[in-house]
């Protein structure tokens, strides 16, 4: 079983996190993390990136004019 390099680890981290790795490669990946603090940090930072991205504010309401337009459109459609 050949070892994965750090440069390879950072290219397959998404496959790892998405659970899209064959069991044997998953084992090689986790084996690498067991001795490489740099890659442990990297994987943690990718997880943190996902978490922070999920926390950026989003526009939660439709602009009033658009919402009104959608309702008007519905009434027209219903009549048609």
């Amino acid at each position: 079983m050949s070892e994965l390099s750090c440069q390879e680890i950072i290219e397959v981290v998404t496959d790892y996190l998405e659970d899209a790795m064959p069991p044997e490669e998953r084992q090689r990946f986790e084996h690498h993390l067991s001795y490489c603090p740099g890659c442990v940090t990297y994987v943690e930072q990718i997880r943190e990136t996902i978490e922070l991205t999920g926390r950026i504010p989003r526009e939660e309401a439709l602009p009033a004019a658009l919402r009104e337009g959608l309702l008007t459109q519905f009434r027209t459609w219903r009549r048609g």
Binding site: Q7, C39, Q45
Partner: peptide, 12 residues
């Protein structure tokens, strides 16, 4: 360590 970190990523 060929293709290993030149230096580890810094903590955030």
């Amino acid at each position: 360590f060929p293709r290993g970190w030149a230096s580890f990523p810094l903590q955030w």
